[in-house]
Design a protein around this nucleic acid. Structure first.
Length: 670
RNA sequence: GGCGGCGUAGCUCAGUUGGCCAGAGCAGGAGAAUCAUAAUCUCUGUGUCAGGGGUUCGACUCCCUUCGCCGCCA
């Protein structure tokens, strides 16, 4: 294979409204990082680019709901995402963000150029407008009743209940999601990208991609069959890249248009950072560049159809060479769902475990050909059985054996003849073979192939039984250990793309300095070992249950499904007070209802609560509880109730809220 | 409803353009060894390759169909 002059690798820009989860890692980041690390060891001219995608309606909506600015939201998540990537060992050459001036300029120049080339045309559309917010409402800014299934709270783009796509104007009883006002239909002008004009060139271009994954090609064929339609690329929002046209004042680019341009602006930022501001052109303007986009399958259309069309419309720039799109990762047998918070999050993982076990568990089971399942049970087994027992133990037994019997020195021995031949041959051919796999995006196969080597080492070690030959046949023992050390030495290199942290630790033991991928075929061996250390801690079985249980817990920072966000003013309407239960007794003829006289500070009143199944009347008297004091009175089973007590309800298990330290009855709660 | 995908050992997954007895890891069973993180090594699978039909000398691999799951679109 003729190797390209330069390689430019991108991973999908993560959306800056949440943390990174395992599904994204497996889809777009880990495979790309492995590919890039391999090429860096190969000495390829390669640049790895990414950044946060910081525009779009979900961000403005989240901001409006939390009474924050979009900037607050994106700053928070940009930094979290960036940090967790770093800790996980994902090494971008540049991690940018689409809210930077350099991106605005790049995106606007791009737009202007495509406009000048005649591929952007205005058109009039009818959209919902909120008179009280005085703005046009993007689809997700509208909420109403789904016209198909009649469920409430359907968004303007999709109904969560029945999953159907909706036009905002179809919604019954539409409401502005920000202020609740009823929007009206107004006409507005938008600009459309002439995607339809590129159908034939795209089809030809894609048709020539012989080695692309069939799923990517088939997916695009489906789109061609239906015929590509022009797409609006402007929106009536204030958050986004302003459209550089006089006639489009106040409008911004649709996020899907500006986001991929982020690949270019991030490359520019990188070039500036390394002090060679024109360097980005070597990659984007030279047809000998191999441009590789790592994405998940949800992004196929944009990267394989829309984005190439944009690049064609612009004219100057290289088109994607490869788009190794991955399928989805499921978790414990079901789909990831960020909106339902059914996901395993990277920052949380990193609080509990080192990066490499996850890198390994994901790499060895990447969704390259189909959806694949991540299970904590599997993670646990991979860590203990494969990393710790096979790899870690092999390195450790070699190191310890040398320490004990050779005082840490590596014996010099002729490697010819002898039974080490099989091992030496495996070492010699592995780098080329594994490299070939990585180069053709068979990362999973490559990861498994590498892990075959320490297993081979264990077999060899066992057969040679150096603990016996050490006395009986020292020269043979010398040879065995020399061969084993050589294998460890090669592992430092071959492991690096997959397990960079482990690789570095092996590197510290060997102290051989920087080596290339090709050095692994005939790896040098040090005179002696520096430190030795255990590479992998075994994990207790209990982590399986603990981590699996986490899937069901809602984490802070994520919008709860269910009740809408309320303002502080809403909250202030509640009058919560502590109260002392003076006396309590069952409401006659009921099982659950308890009638209580409570003291809320100089005033006694009667309340009724449905806690009779869990609390005996006798134990209630004397307790300090929390009540809603200004709840309108109600009659329950004919008994008057002047307030409501607060309790945590966990199925049948009910627990009264009480105070942590003694306070006087009637104290305000806020 | 239309288009597309998936369904391979108990579990998680490989199976290149159809061709030697359908594979790997884990789990399970038996044994060996004891240098090593009680870590290793060896041996061990009668799986209707979802069901049915067809093409072919020959199909997990191609075609049709049924069932189950999923995605995109309407």
């Amino acid at each position: 294979m003729l190797s390209p002059v330069r390689i430019l690798v991108t991973s999908a820009l993560p959306y800056a409204n949440g943390d990174i989860h395992f599904g994204q890692l497996a889809g777009a980041y880990l495979p790309a990082d492995i590919y890039v690390k391999y090429h860096r060891l190969k000495g390829s001219d390669i640049v790895y680019i990414c950044g946060s995608d910081e525009h779009g309606v979900p961000i403005t909506l989240a901001a409006a709901k939390q009474k924050l600015s979009p900037k607050d939201i994106i700053d928070r998540y940009h930094n979290r995402i960036k940090r967790s990537f770093e800790e996980f060992g994902i090494e971008f050459d540049n991690y940018s963000r689409t809210s930077l001036p350099i991106h605005y300029r790049t995106a606007q120049d791009f737009f202007s150029r495509v406009y000048k080339n005649g591929f952007i045309k205005p058109g009039v559309t009818r959209q919902l407008y909120c008179p009280s917010c005085r703005m046009f409402l993007a689809d997700r800014y509208v909420e109403g009743i789904c016209p198909y299934c009649g469920s409430k709270g359907a968004r303007g783009d999709q109904c969560e209940k029945c999953g159907r796509w909706i036009e905002p104007s179809e919604l019954i009883e539409p409401r502005c999601k920000v202020c609740g006002a009823v929007p009206e239909v107004r006409e507005t002008r938008h600009w459309f990208f002439a995607l339809s004009q590129f159908q034939e060139s795209l089809r030809k271009w894609l048709g020539a991609k012989q080695n692309w994954k069939p799923n990517v090609k088939r997916f695009c064929e489906g789109w061609f069959k239906k015929g590509l339609k022009d797409r609006p690329i402007t929106r009536d929002l204030s958050w986004g890249v302003p459209v550089p046209l006089e006639a489009a004042k106040g409008k911004v680019m649709y996020v899907w248009f500006d986001a991929p341009i982020g690949y270019i602006s991030s490359t520019k930022e990188w070039a500036e950072r390394i002090g060679e501001p024109d360097r980005w052109k070597d990659y984007w303007l030279d047809s000998r560049t191999k441009l590789v986009h790592f994405i998940g399958k949800d992004n196929i259309v944009f990267h394989a159809v829309v984005w190439p069309a944009m690049l064609m419309a612009h004219g100057d720039w290289v088109l994607p060479t490869d788009i190794p799109a991955n399928e989805f990762l499921n978790i414990e047998g079901r789909k990831f769902s960020t909106s339902h918070n059914r996901a395993a999050w990277l920052p949380e993982y990193l609080q509990d475990f080192p990066p490499d076990p996850l890198r390994y568990a994901l790499a060895v089971n990447l969704p390259e050909n189909r959806d694949v399942d991540f299970a904590w049970r599997d993670f646990h087994a991979r860590n203990n059985n494969e990393l710790a027992d096979v790899l870690g133990n092999f390195v450790n037994r070699v190191a310890v054996f040398l320490k004990k019997n050779y005082n840490g020195r590596v014996p010099e021995a002729s490697l010819d003849g002898g039974e080490g031949q099989e091992v030496l041959e495996a070492i010699a051919e592995a780098p080329g073979r594994v490299g070939g796999m990585i180069d053709s995006y068979r990362i999973k196969e490559a990861a498994r192939a590498v892990m075959t080597l320490p297993a081979l080492g264990n077999r060899y070690f066992d057969r040679q039984a150096p603990w016996r030959s050490f006395k009986a046949d020292p020269s043979r023992c010398d040879q065995t250990m020399a061969v084993c050390t050589r294998l460890v030495s090669m592992l430092e290199i071959l492991l690096y793309p997959f397990l960079p942290f482990t690789s570095r630790r092996i590197g510290k033991m060997l102290g051989l300095g920087k080596r290339s991928w090709d050095d692994a075929a005939l790896p040098v061996v040090p005179k002696e070992l520096k430190s030795t250390e255990i590479l992998f801690e075994k994990l207790d079985k209990s982590i399986i249950e603990v981590q699996t249980a986490r899937l069901r817990i809602r984490k802070p920072g994520h919008v709860r499904k269910g009740k809408a966000m309320i303002s502080f003013d809403d909250f202030k309407k509640l009058e919560l007070r502590t109260a002392k239960i003076v006396s309590a007794g069952k409401v006659p003829g009921t099982e659950k209802l308890v009638k209580m006289i409570i003291d809320i500070g100089g005033e006694e009143r009667q309340i009724v609560a449905g806690i009779g199944k869990v609390y005996e009347s006798q134990e209630l008297a004397g307790k300090t509880i929390i009540v809603v004091a200004n709840l309108a009175p109600a009659k329950i089973r004919g008994v008057e109730s002047n307030g409501m007590l607060l309790a945590a309800i966990d199925g049948d298990n009910i627990s009264l809220l009480t105070v942590d330290r003694p306070v006087s009855a009637g104290s305000e709660v806020s």
